[in-house]
Design a protein around this nucleic acid. Structure first.
Lengths: 149, 149
DNA sequence: TGCTCTATGTCAGGACTTTGACATAGCAGA
DNA sequence: TCTGCTATGTCAAAGTCCTGACATAGAGCA
């Protein structure tokens, strides 16, 4: 029994299974990214930058659900490896728009196929309708939790 | 824009929305448990012990998706606060079966209603069918990811 | 113009979690 | 019997992430 199964009532709690799924996905992503010498936050940063070039540190942090400080060290690491570039001076306000380098784009492409393979595996036993329903249900949950009261 | 919305294609990725939902739930739970001076892992430990008295450290760790070491410090904290009890000597093997004290049970009850309120809020805008589908879909995802290949 | 408020980037410190390692207890098979 | 093998509890070290704080840049308003 590698991962708990016969726990009982907790398995009926949406929150518990949600956590379980998130951890399983995280572990799978971590294993898939390790050969590429990328951590999950680093990959998330690259993926976001690939889809939205020029994002600032704070925007990347919000998009990957970490703090600005954490994203800052991630960006420094990626910058030292030559995967992303930031201007030395802020063109507007204090935001430093970050863009992928060619090496960063290459890394992103290989990592992206690996992650897409993981997602395919995760949702492989779901019908398209189930997958659509899952996506919508999760989005609804996020929206419901965001309501302040 | 407190949390990213207009991100685009990433919102269509199941993994991304899954992470988003998990973080939102985690934050909501953390806020709800703070008045009770409980962290999420501590609550998870109490909840698991409430449903399965006598669980060992390693079993609790697996049930809450952390390492044995982390669960060990959690248990020490709960033990120092008098919420759980462990025998000084192992009745079988090296396992130390942990049980809730009366104070631990009281804490669990109040915390449990708070967390149930969070879950209710999270799933409030979902139909019972949607909720059932979400639970099943997540369980299927976990099972699919657990397959070794 | 000047003031306040918000947002950004960054530094230092601390809290939490994980990785690595070790000794020990039970189990299965030669 | 005894010899791997697995599992458990625990210690030490490292890593990761967050909280708190500060200076700065732009927006809104008197």
């Amino acid at each position: 029994m590698s991962q708990g199964e016969m726990l009982g009532p907790v398995d009926d709690a949406v929150g518990y299974v949600l956590k379980q799924a998130a951890v399983a996905l995280r572990n799978a992503m971590d294993a898939a990214l390790r050969p590429l010498h990328l951590t999950v936050p680093q990959y998330a940063c690259l993926e976001l930058l690939g889809q939205h070039p020029g994002l600032s540190n704070a925007e990347l942090a919000r998009g990957t659900f970490v703090t600005r400080q954490s994203m800052n060290v991630v960006l420094r690491g990626l910058e030292d490896r030559g995967l992303v570039t930031r201007p030395v001076t802020a063109p507007r306000g204090r935001e430093l728009p970050t863009v992928l380098t060619q090496a960063g784009l290459d890394h992103l492409r290989t990592a992206s196929v690996a992650i897409r393979r993981i997602e395919k595996k995760m949702c492989g036993d779901l019908t398209p309708a189930q997958q659509k329903g899952l996506l919508e249900a999760l989005a609804t949950c996020v929206r419901s939790l965001a309501d302040t009261p």
